[in-house]
């Protein structure tokens, strides 16, 4: 199995509503795949199924050749299957430095040690500073998250994910809610992601998708309706149909 990450025939329904229908997808190292689709297409549900927040009704998730469908979300993160959240989930009183430090400590199996002082390991502090500077967060590294701009909080979400040294990264709308003036900073951060990392990007901002992705997967009504190059996606009638009547994106895709 050459794919680093593969999902096979994944399905999920809530009550009578089928939110994920027989979805199959795979990623190899270095992949830059965008998952797009109108609101309610089941994009975030798919991420939740893949990362273990939800259990699928049927289908499997493979990671590095191993079936991880039954593994907990925590176990998957430790293997290198990492996600960010569509709506920022951060600790309002902690600083960016503390978020990243805690994450690095976890990677080293030290996040729940009692007889250790937090933030006093020079090697970890150096790594945390390095990650924060990569994302342009050095200036706000020691301010409580509640006091920093939303765009910076979105970047911190990515910083936490990178501190886990992921092999597969699922970015759930990294630019959601960010003023357009700050989008370039997020785009720059995405452009600097390691080339052997496999990335699945969920995004509404089509400009960002077209610049970032080498492959586009279109989800509609819980199933994949198109897989292919970004240019081909724009011209595909099924993709147009998925977006038809669905506000601004329709004209941009078409």
């Amino acid at each position: 199995m050459s794919a680093l990450f593969r999902i096979e025939h994944l399905s999920k329904q809530f009550g009578g509503l089928k939110v994920t229908r027989d979805v199959s997808l795979d990623l190899v190292p270095g992949d830059r795949v965008a998952l797009i689709g109108p609101n309610g297409a089941g994009k975030t549900t798919l991420v939740n199924l893949v990362t273990g927040q939800l259990r699928p009704d049927s289908g499997q998730v493979f990671f590095g050749g191993e079936d991880v469908t039954r593994l907990s979300d925590v176990a998957r993160v430790r293997k290198g299957l990492v996600r960010t959240f569509q709506v920022t989930r951060l600790f309002s009183e902690m600083t960016p430095d503390e978020h990243v430090t805690l994450t690095i400590l976890q990677r080293k199996g030290r996040a729940t040690r009692i007889l250790e002082r937090f933030g006093h390991d020079p090697a970890i502090e150096f790594e945390a500073a390095d990650i924060l500077s990569t994302l342009g967060l050095t200036e706000v590294a020691h301010r409580p998250v509640a006091e920093i701009a939303y765009g910076q909080q979105r970047l911190l979400e990515i910083a936490i994910a990178l501190a886990l040294r992921p092999r597969v990264l699922l970015l759930d709308e990294p630019a959601a809610g960010v003023p357009s003036s700050e989008t370039p900073r997020i785009e720059a951060a995405l452009a600097r992601l390691s080339s052997d990392l496999a990335v699945l990007l969920i995004e509404h901002d089509m400009d960002l998708v077209f610049r970032f992705a080498r492959k586009v997967v279109v989800l509609n009504g819980g199933e994949i309706v198109f897989t292919g190059a970004p240019d081909a996606a724009a011209a595909d009638p099924r993709v147009r149909e998925a977006y038809l009547g669905s506000y601004a994106h329709a004209s941009r895709v078409a």
């Binding site: 990362t51 925590v74 040690r113 009692i114």
Partner: peptide
């Protein structure tokens, strides 16, 4: 000492958002 150890920080994180802590692999 304990409330400022990595363990103490993790607990504060759990108090605010357990899902975020899990997504950090803890």
């Amino acid at each position: 000492f304990v409330v400022r150890s990595p363990f103490g920080m993790t607990c504060r994180g759990i108090k605010e958002d357990p899902l975020r802590i899990r997504a950090m692999g803890i």
